[in-house]
């Protein structure tokens, strides 16, 4: 229920107010603006040309927004689901993390569909690893190879 008491009539109201005691200063130059609510004159609205997912904690699209990589495919469906939940909910963030991982696989499939075989070694910057940390790279490759071989040998032995 809304409290309709005129707050300025409350006995003692603002008697100890100290504008200098403002731990947000100098980050925030307080004005009365913040007490007026969502009433400011908004910049002109950018027209959406792609699908923009919108936080359910706001009533509208912001006046401008990014148009990079609109949601698509299975990851897009997961993202749309996530945006049914507020930013304070794990129901929002955990599906987004899942969508990011699904999107990674979709990216590889898209590359292959376009006839581009991704050079994962180059994309991961292993040229630099070879240049600046050759010993470490060789060690990593040897350990990975030995571990993989050991797992295969173990699996083969179990099958027998």
């Amino acid at each position: 229920m809304e409290n309709t008491t005129e707050f300025k009539n409350i006995k003692g109201w603002a008697q100890d107010a100290d504008p200098i005691n403002d731990p947000t200063y100098p980050m925030k130059h307080k004005t009365d603006e913040e007490h007026k609510g969502y009433t400011w004159e908004r910049p002109p609205q950018q027209q959406p040309t792609v699908e923009i997912l919108q936080s359910n904690e706001r009533p509208n699209l912001t006046a401008v927004f990014g148009t990079s990589t609109p949601p698509s495919g299975l990851s897009g469906r997961i993202r749309r689901y996530a945006f049914q939940y507020s930013e304070g909910s794990y129901g929002h963030w955990l599906p987004l993390i899942l969508a990011d991982r699904v999107n990674m696989v979709e990216g590889i499939i898209d590359d292959l569909k376009r006839g581009h075989i991704p050079n994962i070694f180059a994309e991961r910057g292993w040229n630099a690893e070879w240049k600046y940390n050759r010993q470490g790279l060789i060690k990593k490759v040897v350990i990975t190879t030995v571990a993989t071989a050991a797992i295969f040998a173990l699996l083969k032995a179990r099958k027998k």
Partner: peptide, 25 residues
């Protein structure tokens, strides 16, 4: 133009990020 930018909280603009209210664009 928003209430946050007008208070010099330019990292907290309310008219630049549709996807989240917790951070500006």
């Amino acid at each position: 133009q928003c209430a946050f930018c007008k208070q010099e909280l330019y990292g907290n603009c309310h008219e630049s990020n549709s996807q989240a209210t917790a951070v500006g664009g």
